[in-house]
């Protein structure tokens, strides 16, 4: 990119364009192919869009913040085993209480239980590991991988010994779908996301310093240890929101976060975070639109996203190895 191109492609221009794209995909999603009763279709589609926007926002913000505190751009919260824990919680409920109980529990109650469980898990894992020396974050990541594996194995064990009928119900709740939106659950999730966002807004400048790495952050007077804990708690809540609403989506965060780093020419979180969120909304809403209108529900969006994100993940690892 030449210096002229740099001057034209400012963060403001990038954000305006990304916001425009997000708005465009939302507008198209709301209006394309509307036949008959608008009064029915608009709220129906609105609910879907609200779910997608909330999930996209939660995944984008959680991934960028996670990258900031870990000082890398490849790992995502799912590597810490959060989505695996979500699946394990649901599977064990189905296993121990029966799937009818799982479908019987109010969604928002189930969601709050899961969020609490996940926050407790992160807190425990973290304080347990934090007593160590300098490399606590790396140790934590490694432990996250191992915990993830443990949770996945436990879930698959439960699923193997579970009643086949109950397994079907369970499977239905596990796979991401934006057509299962639930207004009550959505509003509880939205409140949580709003609270986290307010906290993130207050910490926006501290995040910029955290991105410089542990030592520079400490030098500049940031309580690094406390900030890592606080940020991790925020990430936990956001990941809980997205997984509870649509199930585990591993590589989507990686995809939008890295696109945002590429497209928004700034190191400041106040610019990168909205950029990543706009990209997430565009990808989810635009992708769902494409899927519904062009492929006529030929596939689940999560599969397409995981496919693209997985390729990006592998490419990033290969390129890093080549360097």
């Amino acid at each position: 990119m030449g210096s002229d191109a740099k001057r034209i492609w400012t963060p403001a221009v990038a954000l305006t364009l990304l916001a425009g794209l997000a708005l465009l995909s939302v507008a198209l999603f709301m209006t394309v192919g509307v036949k008959g009763n608008w009064g029915f279709i608009l709220p129906f589609r609105g609910l879907k869009i609200a779910t997608m926007a909330l999930v996209g926002y939660a995944i984008a913000v959680s991934t960028v913040l996670f990258h900031t505190i870990t000082g890398n751009r490849i790992l995502t919260p799912s590597i810490m085993g959060f989505d695996a824990l979500f699946v394990l919680i649901q599977t064990s409920i189905a296993f121990f209480f029966g799937a009818t109980f799982l479908t019987g529990l109010t969604p928002s109650l189930l969601f709050l239980v899961q969020t609490a469980a996940m926050t407790v898990f992160a807190g425990l894992l973290f304080s347990w590991l934090f007593r160590g020396g300098v490399r606590e974050l790396h140790l934590m990541l490694l432990s996250g991988i191992i915990f993830g594996l443990l949770f996945r194995s436990l879930s698959s064990f439960f699923r193997r010994v579970i009643d086949p009928d109950e397994f079907l119900i369970l499977q239905d709740t596990l796979f991401a779908s934006f057509n299962r939106a639930n207004p009550e659950l959505l509003s509880v999730a939205a409140i949580l996301v709003l609270l986290v966002s307010l906290a993130a807004w207050r910490l926006r400048n501290v995040f910029d310093v955290m991105a410089l790495g542990r030592e520079t952050a400490i030098n500049l007077g940031v309580n690094h240890r406390r900030m890592v804990t606080v940020t991790l708690a925020m990430v936990t809540v956001l990941v809980s929101v997205s997984t509870a609403l649509v199930g585990p989506v591993t590589f989507f965060g990686l995809l939008v976060a890295n696109l945002a780093y590429m497209l928004v020419p700034s190191h400041r979180h106040i610019l990168v975070l909205p950029g990543a969120a706009f990209l997430a909304v565009t990808c989810l809403v635009g992708g769902q639109l494409f899927l519904e209108r062009v492929l006529s529900y030929g596939s689940a969006l999560s599969i397409v996203i995981e496919f693209a994100g997985g390729i990006v993940f592998i490419m990033m690892i290969v390129m890093r190895g080549a360097r």
Partner: peptide, 8 residues
Amino acid sequence: DNHLTARL
């Protein structure tokens, strides 16, 4: 060693 992930 001062390694940065952010592009500054």
